[in-house]
Computed example of a mutant assay.
Amino acid sequence: MSAREAEEFESFRPRLFSLAYRLLGSAAEAEDAVQDAYLRWHAADRAAIETPAAWLTRVVTNLCHNRMASARVRREAYVGPWLPEPVMTEGARLGPMESAEQREAVSMAMLLLLERLTPAERAAFVLREAFGHSHREIAAVLEISEAGAQQLYHRARERVAEGRPRFRATRAEGRAIAERFLRAAAVGDLRSLESLLAADVAAWADGGGKSTAARRVIVGAAKVARYLGSWVENGAAEIGVAIGEVNGQPALYGVAEGRLLGVMVLEITDGLVSTVRTVVNPDKLVHMSARLRSQGPSTVSR
Rank of each mutant, 00 (worst) to 15 (best):
F12A: 01
R13Y: 01
L16M: 04
L16S: 02
R22A: 08
L23D: 06
A33E: 10
A37W: 01
A37L: 05
A37S: 13
R40P: 15
A44I: 03
R46W: 08
E50S: 12
T51V: 13
A53D: 13
A53K: 09
A54G: 09
L63D: 00
C64Y: 03
E76H: 06
A77E: 11
E85W: 03
L94K: 02
L94G: 02
L94S: 03
P96L: 07
A100L: 12
E101S: 12
E104K: 15
L113T: 03
L114F: 06
L117Q: 06
E121G: 05
F125A: 06
V126I: 13
V126F: 03
L127M: 06
R128Y: 08
R128F: 08
E129G: 06
H135A: 12
R136N: 15
E137Q: 10
I138V: 14
I138G: 02
S145V: 07
E146L: 05
A149L: 07
Q150N: 15
L152M: 07
E158D: 12
A161D: 13
P165L: 05
P165C: 07
T170C: 10
R171M: 05
R171C: 02
A172R: 09
G174D: 05
G174E: 04
A176G: 10
I177E: 01
A184P: 07
A185C: 08
D189M: 03
L190M: 08
A199Y: 09
V201C: 10
A203Y: 05
D206R: 07
G207I: 08
A213C: 10
A214I: 14
R215Q: 15
R216F: 15
I218V: 10
A221W: 02
A221F: 05
A222F: 03
V224Q: 02
V224F: 03
G229Q: 07
N234G: 14
E238R: 14
G248R: 01
P250W: 05
P250H: 07
P250Q: 09
L252H: 06
G254L: 04
G254A: 10
V255M: 13
L260T: 00
T269V: 15
L272P: 01
L272R: 02
L272W: 00
P282R: 00
P282Y: 00
V286N: 09
A290I: 10
P297Q: 10
S301N: 08
R302Q: 11
